[in-house]
Structures are given as structure tokens and as C-alpha cells.
Simulated assay, not measured.
Amino acid sequence: MDRVEDLLHEALSEYAVQGDAYLARVAERLSTGLGRGALSILMRVERFGGLRECDLTAQLRLPAAETRRHVDDLVGRGLATRTGDGSLAVVRVTARARDFLADAADERRGRILDSLGEFTLEEKESFARLLAKFVQRDDLVVRSLDLPQRR
């Protein structure tokens, strides 16, 4: 492996560790004992609106039983609602969870801006495009072309 790959691997590994720790803190702030898996479901449902349990299972690559367990937990905590039965049941975020997630997103954006504080505008734009390309999300590459012109 060449040096660039080693550096990328190290940086992405550290980023994953930091991301896991961040999600664990956010989950705990939202509801004591809530796990990252359930929070991931909640965040995805908030992002895309109501989602069927089978779609959550496919998108998050989880076993159906694990998805169901997380959704049961979220419903029991009053953070999500479920309409319908089985894998076709639609999961939605409650107002309480929506408000919390909006605040968490604002905090996350602030942390990202702080981390990018020493970057030039051109470096920020380049980083956004390259990261979107690296994770093979063409929709993010296209959207990154319209980045706000902030310094």
C-alpha cells in the first residue's frame, strides 16, 4: 500500500472512532440508555420522512429483527411512531425527537465549521467535493457545487 492510502486509512479510522463516540453522546443526551443503532434509525427517518421498516432494514443493512427491536425501543421512548404492521409498517419521528435532532444538527454544523476554521473557501469546497466522490454519493457531489460562499 502506498503512503496516501495509509494516511487515508488512518484518518478515516480516526474519523469513524470520533463519529461513533459523538453518536453515543447524542443518543445518551436524547434518552438515557438509547443506543447508536436506534439513533441511526431515528436520524434516517428524520432525514427522509416516514420510512417503512423494510426500507430501514435495507438502507442500514441490518437484520430485520434488529431493526424491529430498535423501532420498538424508539416507540416505547416516545421518539417515534409506527403505523401499520410488520416490515411494511411506516416509522415516523415524534415532535420531541424532531426538535432534539434539529438542535443536534445545528450543533454538528457548528462543530464542522469549527473544524474547517483554518481551511480556505477553496479548500472547503474541494474537500466537500472529494469526500462526496470518495463515498460514491453522486448526489452530494452535485449539491456541493452550490455550496454557500462563506469564509
Rank of each mutant, 00 (worst) to 15 (best):
L42G: 01
D106A: 15
L62N: 04
L79K: 03
A64L: 11
D72W: 06
S31I: 08
A97M: 05
L42A: 04
G78W: 08
D106R: 14
A97V: 00
A27E: 02
G84S: 04
A105Y: 10
C54N: 10
M43P: 00
T120P: 02
G110T: 15
T83S: 13
L12M: 13
L116Q: 15
K124Q: 11
H70P: 01
G33E: 03
R96Y: 07
A65C: 11
A104S: 09
G117S: 15
V91M: 10
R25A: 13
R61S: 14
R82A: 07
G49C: 05
R44A: 04
I41R: 00
A38S: 08
L60S: 07
Q18R: 06
G35K: 03
Q18F: 02
G19W: 00
Q18K: 03
A27S: 06
R68T: 12
F100N: 04
L23S: 06
A21C: 03
A38N: 02
S87P: 00
V93P: 04
R77G: 03
D55M: 04
S87H: 02
C54M: 10
A21T: 01
R36I: 07
D72Y: 06
G37S: 07
D55Y: 01
D73V: 05
D73Y: 02
G78C: 11
S126I: 06
S126D: 10
G35Q: 00
L62G: 05
L88S: 08
R82L: 07
G19F: 00
D106Y: 09
L39S: 01
R52W: 01
R29I: 13
V90G: 00
A102L: 08
R77N: 05
G110D: 14
R82Y: 03
S40N: 13
G76I: 00
T32D: 15
G50P: 00
T32K: 15
T94C: 12
D99Q: 11
I112C: 10
D72K: 08
R98M: 11
T57R: 02
A38L: 01
R25N: 13
A24G: 03
R44C: 00
R129W: 10
D72C: 06
L39R: 01
E107G: 09
E107K: 11
M43I: 06
G110Y: 12
T83L: 09
L121H: 14
D72N: 10
R44K: 09
R36G: 05
T32R: 15
R52Q: 06
F127M: 05
S13M: 05
L62W: 07
K124P: 01
S13N: 05
S87I: 03
G86E: 09
R129L: 15
R111I: 09
A11W: 09
E46D: 14
V75H: 03
A89I: 08
G50H: 02
A128L: 05
E46T: 10
E122F: 11
E118Y: 12
S31R: 12
T32W: 10
E28M: 05
E118C: 12
R98A: 15
L56P: 04
D55I: 00
V90K: 02
D103A: 11
R98D: 14
G33S: 03
L113C: 12
R82S: 08
V90Q: 01
R129M: 13
E123V: 08
T57I: 00
A65Y: 12
S115N: 14
G110F: 13
D85S: 13
E14R: 03
R25G: 10
